[in-house]
Simulated assay, not measured.
Amino acid sequence: MNQKVVLITGCSSGIGLALATRIAKDEKKRFMVYATMRNLSKGEALVEAAGRTLGRTMEIKQLDVCNEDSIKACVDSLPERRVDILISNAGMGMIGPIECQSIDDMRSVMDTNFFGLVRLLKEILPDMKRRKKGHIVVISSVMGIQGILFNDIYAASKFAVEGFCESLAVQALRFNLNISLIEPGPVITEFERKVYDEGLKTDLSKADKVTADMFTNIYLKNYKQIFETLGQSADDVAEHTFKIITMENPPFRHQTNTLYTPMTTLKYADPNGDLPIDTFYKMVFEHDKVFNASLNFLKLLRWRKGAALTGIGRGSTN
């Protein structure tokens, strides 16, 4: 069987781990997965989750998206340097007032989330173009479409990713390549817990009282409730992504969380851009009871929906 080679970044935990194990456990054994991570000493969870696929349909390799030499060494180690499906997943989060964040920390987020993808494609794209065959899958975010309070830098990195891919997609068509942006909303993983814990440690001394109070008593206070209401599991996102990579004609964008879609739809409903900003402002600052009622309603929808996946995309599956 001619297996497709899948290279995935950021596989030590969360979505990356779920993606690697889901694809490697494909019943039809259509894929050979190279699951990568920056620090191989953090690979225990993946090894355990991989089970019998390890050494068969999965191999674990070192790759740091912030290091061009590391990326090249990883790709050089692959048979014929071939990557059929690249899944760019490695990322960093950041929350809080920008007055309280260092430029160096902001640069780290951009370096990982945006330039990490760019580095990968500089190494892998030329061969995909030469073969006129390949699928680039990017784990983006709804925050690449709609900015969210106190996620300024993270949203900026995802906006950059979306603009980059949207521009590249036109060129990719010329080479018969597919690009797909996977756009989850909140996902309940160790990644999100770490972001929240770092947020709790934020030194708010450089922020004014109103901003500090807004971050502590509105944003952080509601953070967990929002995730409990809207949050998906990493396995759910992996299942959506698996369906995307098995399509003959995969979509350019795919949101994995239908409960979040009405919020991003606001942006497209108003060309001036005022509607989503005004709506979010009123939800956060003027209608506390409405906000909580909305979350309770979404909880009911989630309960009724269960774990069922809705139809995906515009193409058929292989």
Rank of each mutant, 00 (worst) to 15 (best):
E123L: 02
T264F: 04
S108L: 10
K243H: 12
L301K: 14
E239N: 03
K132F: 06
P250I: 08
D213I: 04
L46A: 00
S77Q: 10
G306T: 14
L120Q: 06
T112E: 11
K42F: 04
L19C: 09
S88G: 13
K72L: 11
S294W: 08
Y219W: 14
D127P: 00
M283P: 01
G199N: 06
G144P: 10
I95T: 15
S233E: 05
N178L: 08
A18Y: 00
P184I: 10
K289T: 13
V142R: 08
R30Y: 11
E198F: 06
V75F: 02
T229P: 12
L120F: 02
L40D: 14
K158M: 12
L7K: 01
K209S: 15
A50K: 03
V47Q: 15
L220Y: 08
T229F: 12
F114L: 15
G199R: 05
S13K: 06
T211C: 15
I226H: 07
H135F: 08
M1N: 15
F164M: 13
K158A: 11
L200P: 00
F291C: 06
L120Y: 01
K206H: 11
L200M: 01
I15L: 03
V210G: 13
I188L: 04
S205I: 07
S77Y: 05
L120D: 00
G91F: 02
Y223W: 10
L117M: 03
T189C: 01
G10D: 04
F285Q: 02
F150K: 10
D213L: 06
L17A: 03
S294R: 05
E123Q: 13
T310D: 14
S316R: 12
N39V: 10
D76L: 07
M247G: 05
Y281H: 06
C74G: 03
D64K: 02
